[in-house]
Nucleic acid binder design. Sequence first.
DNA 1: AAGATGACGCCCG
DNA 2: CCGGGCGCCATCT
Length: 108
Amino acid sequence: MPLHADILAAIRRIPRGKVSTYGAVACAAGHPGAARQVVGVLRRSVGLPWQRVLGSGGEIKLRGESGFEQRFRLEAEGVTFRGRRVDMKQHEFKFPRMGKKQTKKPRT
DNA sequence: AAGATGACGCCCG
DNA sequence: CCGGGCGCCATCT
């Protein structure tokens, strides 16, 4: 499974009103250390909840209008901020256990 | 193939 | 809290 597919899936699993971090997503996708690749996927893919992906500590790493955009969109989902960071203790989404491959269609 | 870059993460002063 | 440096992985020129 292409790494971007795993990352893509992980990002899509982030529920509304919750957020995650690049590193966490990469890890949840099964690619610890591939935080940068998470960024790549976010940029190339469209229709993803990119706003729910933040930097470590819940900090918005985007600059300029993009940063504002992200902040507003998150607040619109009910996410609260602590200064310039998202209140992670309240909105950090903990990815479910991922044994190996069984992540979506365990089907019989 | 090599060099440079990126919405990163973590350590150190 | 702030600034600086190094490591990671994939992509682009």
